[in-house]
Computed example of a mutant assay.
Amino acid sequence: MRLIADENISWRLKKLLSDWEILPTNEIRANHRLSDFMIWQFAKTNNYTILTFDEDFCELQNLYSHPPKVIWLRTGNVGTQKIAELLILLKQDINQFLSNDDLGIYEVYLY
Protein backbone atom coordinates (compact mmCIF):
# COMPACT_ATOMS: atom_id res chain seq x y z
CA MET A 1 0.00 0.00 0.00
CA ARG A 2 1.57 3.25 -1.16
CA LEU A 3 0.14 6.35 0.47
CA ILE A 4 1.02 9.98 -0.01
CA ALA A 5 0.02 11.97 3.07
CA ASP A 6 -1.36 15.40 2.32
CA GLU A 7 0.35 18.40 3.93
CA ASN A 8 -2.21 18.63 6.73
CA ILE A 9 -1.21 15.16 8.01
CA SER A 10 1.84 15.02 10.25
CA TRP A 11 5.02 13.44 8.89
CA ARG A 12 5.12 11.54 12.21
CA LEU A 13 2.49 9.14 10.82
CA LYS A 14 5.27 7.59 8.74
CA LYS A 15 7.14 6.69 11.95
CA LEU A 16 4.03 5.28 13.63
CA LEU A 17 3.23 3.08 10.62
CA SER A 18 6.75 2.06 9.72
CA ASP A 19 5.58 -1.13 7.96
CA TRP A 20 3.41 0.96 5.56
CA GLU A 21 4.82 2.92 2.64
CA ILE A 22 3.85 6.49 3.48
CA LEU A 23 5.33 9.49 1.70
CA PRO A 24 4.71 12.84 3.42
CA THR A 25 4.34 15.63 0.88
CA ASN A 26 7.11 17.57 2.60
CA GLU A 27 9.52 14.94 1.25
CA ILE A 28 8.66 15.73 -2.39
CA ARG A 29 8.40 19.49 -2.34
CA ALA A 30 11.31 21.85 -2.92
CA ASN A 31 10.85 24.62 -0.35
CA HIS A 32 7.34 25.47 -1.45
CA ARG A 33 3.82 24.27 -0.82
CA LEU A 34 2.43 21.81 -3.33
CA SER A 35 -1.00 22.54 -4.72
CA ASP A 36 -3.66 19.85 -4.44
CA PHE A 37 -3.45 19.34 -8.19
CA MET A 38 0.34 18.88 -8.02
CA ILE A 39 -0.13 16.24 -5.30
CA TRP A 40 -2.85 14.63 -7.44
CA GLN A 41 -0.56 14.46 -10.47
CA PHE A 42 2.36 13.10 -8.43
CA ALA A 43 0.15 10.41 -6.91
CA LYS A 44 -1.23 9.41 -10.30
CA THR A 45 2.18 9.29 -11.98
CA ASN A 46 3.83 7.36 -9.14
CA ASN A 47 0.97 5.00 -8.19
CA TYR A 48 0.18 6.44 -4.77
CA THR A 49 -3.14 6.65 -2.95
CA ILE A 50 -3.80 10.07 -1.41
CA LEU A 51 -4.41 10.18 2.35
CA THR A 52 -6.09 13.44 3.28
CA PHE A 53 -8.47 15.43 5.46
CA ASP A 54 -9.19 17.63 2.44
CA GLU A 55 -12.44 17.40 0.47
CA ASP A 56 -10.72 19.03 -2.50
CA PHE A 57 -9.20 15.70 -3.55
CA CYS A 58 -12.68 14.22 -3.81
CA GLU A 59 -13.65 17.09 -6.07
CA LEU A 60 -10.57 16.43 -8.21
CA GLN A 61 -11.64 12.83 -8.48
CA ASN A 62 -15.11 13.91 -9.58
CA LEU A 63 -13.43 15.89 -12.37
CA TYR A 64 -10.71 13.45 -13.42
CA SER A 65 -11.82 10.06 -12.04
CA HIS A 66 -9.23 7.70 -10.61
CA PRO A 67 -6.43 6.79 -10.28
CA PRO A 68 -5.27 8.06 -7.93
CA LYS A 69 -7.54 6.75 -5.24
CA VAL A 70 -8.31 8.85 -2.17
CA ILE A 71 -8.60 7.88 1.49
CA TRP A 72 -10.55 10.75 2.99
CA LEU A 73 -10.16 11.07 6.76
CA ARG A 74 -13.38 12.61 8.05
CA THR A 75 -12.35 12.35 11.67
CA GLY A 76 -12.26 15.93 12.82
CA ASN A 77 -9.34 17.22 14.80
CA VAL A 78 -7.60 14.08 16.06
CA GLY A 79 -3.97 13.38 16.79
CA THR A 80 -1.53 11.47 14.68
CA GLN A 81 -1.59 8.50 17.05
CA LYS A 82 -5.38 8.18 16.63
CA ILE A 83 -5.04 8.32 12.84
CA ALA A 84 -2.45 5.54 12.96
CA GLU A 85 -4.74 3.43 15.16
CA LEU A 86 -7.67 3.93 12.77
CA LEU A 87 -5.62 2.98 9.73
CA ILE A 88 -4.33 -0.15 11.45
CA LEU A 89 -7.87 -1.07 12.46
CA LEU A 90 -9.10 -0.56 8.89
CA LYS A 91 -6.11 -2.06 7.08
CA GLN A 92 -8.01 -5.04 5.67
CA ASP A 93 -10.88 -2.82 4.45
CA ILE A 94 -8.42 -0.37 2.93
CA ASN A 95 -6.65 -3.17 1.07
CA GLN A 96 -10.01 -4.37 -0.31
CA PHE A 97 -10.79 -0.81 -1.40
CA LEU A 98 -7.42 -0.50 -3.13
CA SER A 99 -7.89 -3.78 -4.99
CA ASN A 100 -11.34 -2.78 -6.31
CA ASP A 101 -10.90 -0.87 -9.58
CA ASP A 102 -14.48 0.44 -9.44
CA LEU A 103 -13.95 2.41 -6.21
CA GLY A 104 -12.09 5.70 -5.99
CA ILE A 105 -12.80 7.20 -2.55
CA TYR A 106 -12.69 5.52 0.85
CA GLU A 107 -14.14 7.66 3.65
CA VAL A 108 -12.95 7.08 7.21
CA TYR A 109 -15.23 8.34 9.98
CA LEU A 110 -14.60 8.56 13.70
CA TYR A 111 -17.58 8.44 16.01
Rank of each mutant, 00 (worst) to 15 (best):
P67F: 10
R74W: 12
L34Y: 01
L63W: 07
K82R: 15
K91Q: 09
W72H: 00
M38D: 09
I39N: 03
V78S: 13
E55D: 14
I71N: 08
L89S: 12
V70L: 04
K82Y: 03
L87P: 14
G79L: 08
I83Y: 00
L63I: 13
R74L: 11
E55K: 12
E85A: 15
Q81D: 15
Y64M: 11
T45W: 11
T49F: 12
T45G: 02
D54Q: 04
K91C: 01
R33M: 15
F53E: 12
N77M: 08
D93M: 01
L60A: 03
G76C: 04
I50H: 03
L86S: 06
Q41A: 06
P67Y: 07
D54Y: 10
Y64T: 08
L34P: 05
K44L: 08
S65D: 15
P67D: 07
I50L: 11
F42N: 03
F57C: 03
F42K: 09
W72Q: 03
I50W: 01
L89W: 04
V78W: 12
H32D: 12
E59D: 14
L73D: 13
A43C: 09
H66R: 05
D36G: 00
Q61M: 02
L51C: 08
N62G: 12
Q81M: 11
E85V: 15
L51V: 00
L87I: 10
E55L: 12
Y64N: 09
F53S: 10
Q92D: 11
T52M: 04
C58Y: 05
F53Y: 15
H66N: 04
I94A: 02
W40G: 00
K69N: 14
H32A: 11
L73R: 06
E85D: 15
P67C: 06
P68S: 00
K91W: 05
Q61I: 04
L86F: 15
K69H: 14
S65Y: 13
E59S: 13
L73H: 06
I88N: 13
T75N: 09
K82E: 01
L63P: 01
T49Y: 09
R33A: 15
N47D: 13
L60E: 01
I83H: 05
N46K: 14
